[in-house]
Design a protein around this nucleic acid. Structure first.
Lengths: 331, 331
DNA sequence: TTGAAAGCGCTAACAC
DNA sequence: GTGTTAGCGCTTTCAA
């Protein structure tokens, strides 16, 4: 069964008694056509419910006016902000956004990049799991911007983890803690590595001890093992790979009768929806995820217009949101 | 600046020493080409990094192998499940998913439908705010499936609110409550109307009183006003339009020293991420949002293949998840 | 089994 | 200011 028939530019041209090219101009170069003809053409188009066929435009121009955003897990609230920001940025630039879920799987990510490549003008890759080399190869075919992943030669938007981790360490130090335990996430996570590196450096600077446990599943479910390890180690302050893990940790701590923040302070990363209403509300490092998404789209759009040799890396500020899960060291 | 050059079918044909049509066949009708030629062609294509241009295919066939999913608010965790399910369904059918955020705005939704129409094979509209008539008009041009919205003549996937609301009322009745207060969401919300209608009917059946307050903003922020109204009315059980509102209500109740569930029981709708870790964990009606997304995609895909006169309405079961926010009536 | 040629809807280059 | 024409990359007749 054929798709419903839509009015084409020829239909409009015939109905308006002009050439197809005039209809085309009326839409794309309104200035280059007589005001009267244009209005007439637009009226006829409206009446016929005509809308230009993007596929045909794309074929001619090589531009699809479409961007793809690939995220590891659409349901992860962290990416909701990135998606929202990218959506907003794309809409502002008159671009369509295609969304892809890579299921945290590099192979799936590579396949999507390959398959979507010819259909889009560029990619925003959020928390990409692809090796640097593969990213660069993909960037030869399509403009790419990375979110929370830095690869030399590619446009990147990253959170300022150096400042962020220092804020966390300063906060814990000011509460009298002498050491912290980092509950790590997936080993391949670029931002996970940056978080730990930053914490470690800041802790050393401040004379705090810092230990890393894990890797744990960066989800509620990963919290039990992480919390048990932290308890066994006698930690007074734990910093989790992300908020979901942090909340999972607090759930387990409560289950085991450990008071937060009385016995243990808990800090997360991301400031997701829910960090404000979990129990106790979570102290966490807020990233500007929406802005990151929007900026990444901008970066790709800019590269579409003029290929840059040295695309920029943008560092977005981070801010520690102190809630009730962190408090003075016990004793 | 022109987009990067990609290998075209002609490049592959030239490199393989065959005609373009043979390359085309090697990809689309593998059976109709000599095994040797095909393998050779595919090898050359692989080497050149060739991938068929979807825009060109779409132009010829009128099929884009792309579906659009429109949601009122991407960041709302409720829609994360729908998105995930739709994404999965689309991937399974070899379709690309385009995502659009309508910002809860009917005009924006209409514009997206219009603009995306020629670029996609069909739409999944989640919690559409469009009037029935407009939906039907859009359905003349593109196959459409609705999620949690029923419009005669269109394919719909809806949650079983009749059963769901009965489960809620039965649960409250079994706890000894004599009446409930419904804290309503947006007046245009189809599912909001269904929820209230169901609660009301079930309450009457069970001999419980049921009152509706609102409308409130269906978000954390709407909770304060809603909670205050419930307190003023002396409610022992409140059912909120959705989980975000319910959690917002609990936050305000805690602030005002009202114990949940000691003084007031709170029930939500949606079972979002966070309903399990808010304080206290929320009793809520779980919908199968992922399945809804996947089924809706299936429904659209089926209509693409053969236009049906009477597309089906699918009702998905709902299940009350009892957590600690609901308890025996006080006194 | 394969090649040549036409055409999908649109835009741009070139006439007039 | 507007019409004519060619061609974007691909699939699909139609011949061979």
């Amino acid at each position: 069964m054929p798709p419903r028939k839509r009015a084409t530019i020829t239909d409009v041209a015939a109905a308006a008694g002009v050439a197809a090219s005039t209809v085309s101009r009326a839409f794309t170069h309104p200035g280059r056509v007589n005001v009267h003809t244009r209005e007439h053409v637009l009226a006829v188009a409206e009446e016929l419910g005509y809308a230009p066929n993007p596929a045909a435009r794309a074929l001619e121009s090589g531009r699809t006016r479409t961007l793809a955003l690939l995220v590891p897990d659409i349901t992860n609230p962290y990416f909701a902000g990135v998606i929202k920001g990218a959506e907003r940025g794309a809409a502002a630039a008159g671009l369509t956004l295609v969304l892809g879920d890579t299921a945290e799987n590099p192979a799936q990510e590579a396949q999507l990049v390959r398959r979507l490549g010819p259909a889009v003008d560029g990619f925003v890759l959020s928390a990409s799991r692809l090796p640097d080399e593969e990213l660069r190869r993909a960037a030869d075919l399509n403009p790419i911007a990375l979110v929370n992943r830095a690869t030399p030669g590619l446009a990147c938007v990253v959170a300022d983890f150096d400042s962020g981790t220092r804020q966390i360490v300063d906060h814990l130090a000011s509460l009298g803690h002498h050491s912290l335990v980092f509950l790590g996430g997936p080993p391949e996570s670029w931002s996970g590595a940056r978080r730990w590196a930053g914490l470690r450096a800041a802790a050393e600077e401040r004379g705090l001890g810092a230990t890393r446990f894990g890797p744990y599943v960066p989800a509620l479910a990963g919290g039990a093992a992480a919390a048990d390890a932290a308890i066994a180690a006698g930690a007074t302050a734990v910093v989790a790979h992300n908020d979901m893990l942090a909340i999972g940790v607090m759930l387990r701590l409560a289950e085991r009768g450990v008071d937060v923040p009385g016995d243990v302070s808990v800090v997360g990363f991301d400031n997701i929806v829910g960090a404000d209403f979990c129990n106790p509300p979570l102290t966490t490092l807020a990233e500007r995820t929406e802005e990151a998404g929007a900026r990444a789209v901008e970066a790709v759009a800019a590269q579409v217009l003029s290929r840059t040799d040295d695309p920029p890396t943008r560092v977005l500020p981070t801010q520690l949101v102190v809630r009730r899960s962190s408090g003075p060291v016990p004793g």
